[in-house]
Amino acid sequence: MSEDGELVFRRPAALSDVVTHYCPGCMHGIVHRLIAEVIDELGIRERTVGIAPVGCSVLAYHYFECDFAEAAHGRAPAMATGIKRTHPELVVFTYQGDGDLASIGTNELIHAAARGENITVVFINNAVYGMTGGQMAPTTLPGMVTTSSPYGRDVKRQGYPVRVCELVSQLDGTAYIVRRSAYKPAEIRKLRQALKIAFQVQMAELGFSLVEVVSNCPTNWGMTPKESLRFVEERMIAYYPLGDYRVRDEVKTLK
């Protein structure tokens, strides 16, 4: 097959040319690629600093071709604040899972948002603690079986899942709070656009931006990757509706 066709899709430059440790079918890989595509498109690789959480994406710094720091569990937004406040010219994003952001790190998240820090938070919500082997997370759905809710999450004893976008969008410091997914190409396109806008919001200094990605965990959900996409579409999104939760006026006029 001659390679005469026009190259229309390849690994973005900002995504390191390495094999990731993520499980087969895990959406982390897709979100990583989309972030890298946006970094390339906006031409900001040389002034972007990413902050990895503790969780499955703790090794994210191996997968991006920009400066990266590894934060303590849940503290990425505080670290991002320190970086951004001393180097406003840098584009700073945190990449966090639901245990990191919606459990131990909620306080750091809420106050970074309330302060309107000009940082971008990419929040991967797959309703389980992945790296540690599938425990219940604050976002685990009612009735969902995990290794620490073996009889299914019982809301009477283990409470209700946390809807982060609805929570954070109440804070006036926020400029762009949206929830997307990546379970099919149409959604992946919308997610990519949301990530681009979030970075642009930061670069225009309009305030705090967060993109929540309703994601999957084939391994710890005990499903095949294909089945996990269905679970995201039918069960996860029912509880975590996709959409825009806060888009400040100035964001709408962004090119």
């Binding site: 190259l7 995504l15 890989g29």
Partner: peptide, 8 residues
């Protein structure tokens, strides 16, 4: 998820 496909 692993960016193994290149398209022409």
């Amino acid at each position: 998820p692993d960016t193994v496909i290149t398209v022409y």
